[in-house]
């Protein structure tokens, strides 16, 4: 399917993502990020986070469960840009209610013609209903053509 502006505002059903220590540990290890902020309660208590939190990109490991009422052509999608907006620290044991929405669709003219961009925001609320974080995924939606990988 092609993109159009009418898609802006379309939202997935909410889904729950649990912040599990084993997954956080495996994620930090794969990156080689040994910051004690992710596992050492004593260290983390004395930081601005006031407790253990997750690596800044960990939220991508949660974001793939959205059921969307749109049929994307995954072969045309290329991850162009990623952003994380943190309002509250994400904690081990959090059950975050996630909702993914199309927040923008736009065109940009480049060397190889007009490219379409799709912006997907995943809002993550903690159990108190407070918005903890937003993961913003900007996707380059390439023209439909043969031979694209």
């Amino acid at each position: 399917m092609d993109l159009d502006k009418s898609m802006i505002g379309i939202t997935s059903k909410p889904y729950i993502a649990e912040i599990d220590l084993a997954r956080v540990t495996r994620f930090a290890q794969a990156i080689g990020d040994e910051n004690p902020l992710y596992f050492d309660e004593t260290y983390a208590a004395d930081t601005a986070y006031k407790g253990v939190t997750v690596p800044p990109t960990f939220l991508v490991a949660l974001g793939s469960n959205a059921e969307f009422p749109l049929k994307w052509d995954f072969k045309r999608m290329l991850h162009g840009e990623q952003e994380f907006i943190y309002h509250q620290p994400v904690r081990i044991g959090d059950r975050l209610e996630c909702t993914m929405a199309v927040t923008d669709v736009y065109d940009r003219v480049g060397k190889s013609g007009t490219m379409q961009f799709l912006v997907l925001d995943t809002e993550m609320k903690n159990e108190d209903g407070v918005l903890a974080a937003v993961a913003r995924n900007t996707i380059i939606y390439r023209p439909a053509q043969k031979g694209a990988y």
Partner: peptide, 25 residues
């Protein structure tokens, strides 16, 4: 981006939080 995230979190040290972080590939 995970590598850059490690870097940013180290720069934040104990005093700061990372409130926004983005990367273009």
């Amino acid at each position: 981006m995970g590598f850059l995230g490690q870097y940013v979190q180290e720069l934040a040290g104990t005093e700061s939080v990372v409130s926004n972080f983005n990367m273009r590939f």
